[in-house]
Write a protein that binds this DNA or RNA. Structure first.
Lengths: 331, 331
DNA sequence: TTGTAGGCGTTATCAA
DNA sequence: TTGATAACGCCTACAA
């Protein structure tokens, strides 16, 4: 493997100068820069990240942590979309992604150990739980990190989130305005803020519209297709004429259940999902969806993290993506 | 961050000794080892990977490369399952995983650059194409790597694969033995060996059973659900009474199409998939599946890679997992 | 604008 | 069985 020393020799300069060129130090004459750059590219030289890290520089590696179990990992489209968008954005910025998935609770401690000592310039965490030890550890460490989703305790942490309240409000209002009277909801995972927020917004919106909230019309679906199916089974007994599912996977499960019960969607029961997952867009029968592009979240998280890495803020950044409502009605 | 120096001081030994303990060097007295180990764990000490790499050691990081596009990434369960099984196995072995996904052809060169210089002890590549430049580059480099799936050219590379011929044969024979006469097939992605092999095995099995192979009963599905749906639409015109789909995603697509056409599965048209994907197991209506646990592939690939890293072979290892046939028939 | 030199935390080689 | 000590490749003052 060819090193900085060799490049320096070929370009007729010192290692320092090569280093400056590589790191975009302005204090290099244009002529020298060009010469060095030429040698660099003709040799396909890439600086050694380990050495760079050791010398106090960046590695160009960021960590992506998604501590959810296999059952969700395999069925929720959220996962591949997020991973893809994050890696894609990083690769475009000449960075690499190190991935940690769904470790059980007891192993989380060792993860944080690794994270803090590792080759990472920064970390992105998604799908965490309330008071997640990973988040706590990260917060104590010096490593820059960004959460995808708001964090429960009022910890001053950097996060990027969607406007859950607004999205939910629009979804429920859509159902109200289209004349539905018994609007049910399928919630996500108890013990996550995102689920609570969407549920609360559901309640508030109904209440504000003068509806009585019927507890029989609320069921938990765990964010997965199977859970949406099971929840719909329970809800069906109480004859809703519409369902707001807290994500698309559960919406699809609900539709599967409804069609088994011989109910038409949306004529008999209207269904609205959440996420604007690609698979939902092509799903038949009709699925209406609140748009919240997951990929956008990933991109923004990476961008924010890059900012933090370059100049660590004291002020935490909290970014809430503007909400959109895209109702898809299929033929 | 606490380093080896500090541990040495607290344990009253030299850095060298601590290093020996960490790396399981037998030349340490039991008493010393215990003392060091104690200090290590009480300080939550973890060796710095960058430094370790620089000094000639391992980083404990392996790369996972899956060069497929977004369209497959989002809809094929293959992806999350493989990623999960690989990361899980690695984490259990105290290793980390660096991920590269679906870069377009033109960017592959830079990937290999990164790979070869990076912090990686080894690399796993899946879903490559025939004569993939990534594989070629890896083969020229010194870095240990394992392919998931056999490689076309007779390059002597390490791989772990499933027994595609045998699996396909069993699937098709199952359809023959259950009395089907017009057995169609939906193939994967042209330009991948795995697709060609499954198609060829389909032809051979039919021929050996005395069937005439009807080219109208062969359609390409690209390994995705939508593709399976579209392929089934074409095939339906030629009235097959059974379909062998080269993976479960396409099988699900085919079933969706059939049910839209008012055909019952498996009474009117039997469907057999491939992969034993979890989602397929719970899919209704009836889907019969050739079992080939993807997670097993991931686990084996990691194990093989670890072997290679410890003692690089000259002889390439080629492991073919024994095939299984699990036909699931749902109620 | 450029070069020199020290150090980052570890492993490996040699002596002791 | 242990302890010095020289790399490993790079970055960053500091000096020129």
């Amino acid at each position: 493997m060819i090193g900085i020393e060799e490049i320096a020799k070929q370009a007729g300069v010192s290692r320092s100068t090569v280093s400056r060129v590589i790191n975009n130090d302005p204090n290099v004459s244009e002529r020298t820069r060009q010469r060095v750059l030429e040698v660099v590219s003709s040799n396909n030289y890439v600086p050694n990240r380990a050495a760079r890290k050791l010398a106090g520089g960046r590695t160009g590696v960021i960590g992506l942590v998604i501590p959810i179990g296999v059952s969700r990992l395999f069925v929720e489209p959220f996962f591949p979309i997020l991973v893809q968008s994050v890696t894609d954005r990083c690769n475009r910025l000449n960075h690499s992604v190190m991935l940690w998935l769904g470790e059980p609770e007891r192993e989380r401690r060792s993860i944080t150990q690794i994270l803090s000592n590792d080759l990472l310039d920064g970390v992105i965490v998604s799908s965490f739980q309330d008071r997640d030890p990973i988040v706590a550890a990260l917060h104590q460490s010096q490593i820059p990190f960004v959460l995808i989703g708001r964090y429960p305790d009022s910890l001053p942490v950097n996060f990027v989130d969607i406007d859950n309240e607004e999205c939910t409000r629009r979804a429920v209002n859509y159902l109200i305005h289209t004349g539905h009277k018994r609007i049910a909801t399928i919630t996500g995972v108890a013990g996550t803020l995102v689920s609570r927020v969407r549920l609360q917004a559901y309640r508030d919106t109904l209440a504000r519209a003068g509806f009585q909230v019927d507890e029989n019309l609320i069921a938990e679906g765990g964010f997965i297709e199977e859970g949406g199916y099971a929840a719909m089974r329970k809800l069906a007994a109480h004859q809703p004429d519409a369902v707001f599912a807290a994500n698309d996977a559960m919406a699809v499960g609900a539709i599967r259940c409804l069609s088994e019960l011989g109910l038409r969607v949306p004529e008999d029961v209207a269904v609205v999902g959440f996420d604007d997952a690609p698979f939902a867009a092509s799903y038949k029968p009709a699925l209406t969806t609140v748009a919240q592009p997951i990929a956008e979240l990933g991109r923004h998280a990476v961008n924010m993290l890059m900012q933090l890495i370059q100049r660590p803020h004291t002020q935490p950044i909290m970014e809430v993506l503007p909400s959109e409502l895209v109702i898809r009605e299929s033929a």
